[in-house]
Amino acid sequence: MSDPVPLTTDHPGQVASATPPAPGRSRRLSDRGLAVAFISPALLLLLAMSVFPLLWALYLSFTDYSATRGGPAHFVWFENYTAILTSAQVHLRALTTLIYVVGAVALQTVLGFAIAYLISRRTHGRGLLTTLFLVPMMLSQVVVGLFWKFMLDAQFGVINSMLGSLGLGQVEWLTRQRTALISLIVVDTWQWTPFIMLIALAGLTAVPKYLYEAASIDRASEWFRFRTITLPLVWPLLLIAVLFRAIEAFRLFDLVYILTSGGPGVSTETLSFHVYKVAFLGFNTGTASAYGILMVLVVIVLTQLYLRYLNKLKED
């Protein structure tokens, strides 16, 4: 039988041979056609809205095209790429992004896991506690950003007000170079600690009880049990959560835009925010595309890592 559609093959677990085929057409062929008909619309949409734009960006990244100037684009080959990779500005943004990603994800992981561990030890009120802790994660970054901006306001923000009534000094959270980045990390941690908590809790509740029972018969210490039973069993899942967060944190844009707009100076400009400035404020579309493609490469590497661990988890 010829194979007109290369996308699919027949179902391996078919029991079709037990029944006589429907008259006129074989079920095999209709399965194949069905798979194509069901999958291709979704794939086509992704090709049009995700792959094609990226390819276009790839093309633009080799040109000096500008969205406002118009006119034909000239090929400049790797000029945009060398300009970006050697730019001190970009290096600074990469460092800011790295500090932010590592700081925020590390804090979230430690806090999230701690909360999950504490919750998993409770007998009563676990559902209520979990639900309450999860609220920040479901909010839009816009709402979160706006609200923290208000709370961190130097004049009438509630944080400074509380510090004041404790007799502590006022802090200009969002308008000082160092505290601005810290504020950003704190806000992101506030929002996404629940994410790590939720996944860690899923891991913790899946640890079989008999392992702990066996350990307690052996009179193993608490720390020993944690290190040899809890952590190894939860770690694979936690790692996936951490990688997921790292990818999301690397892409971060909304929170910076709302909370600090990259300022003061450029102290909170992440790579995403810088791309936006190059593309939409500087209108260097070609350069911005090259910048974006480089970011996409980083995301692809991170995503591959994520998918690899995910695959491993699924196979176990």
């Binding site: 995700s50 990226l54 995403s272 925010f273 910048y291 493609i293």
Partner: peptide, 13 residues
């Protein structure tokens, strides 16, 4: 997982 800020440039055009 693509960064939206990057995707939005060609989408905009």
């Amino acid at each position: 997982f693509m960064p939206p800020v990057v995707v939005v440039i060609p989408i905009f055009l």
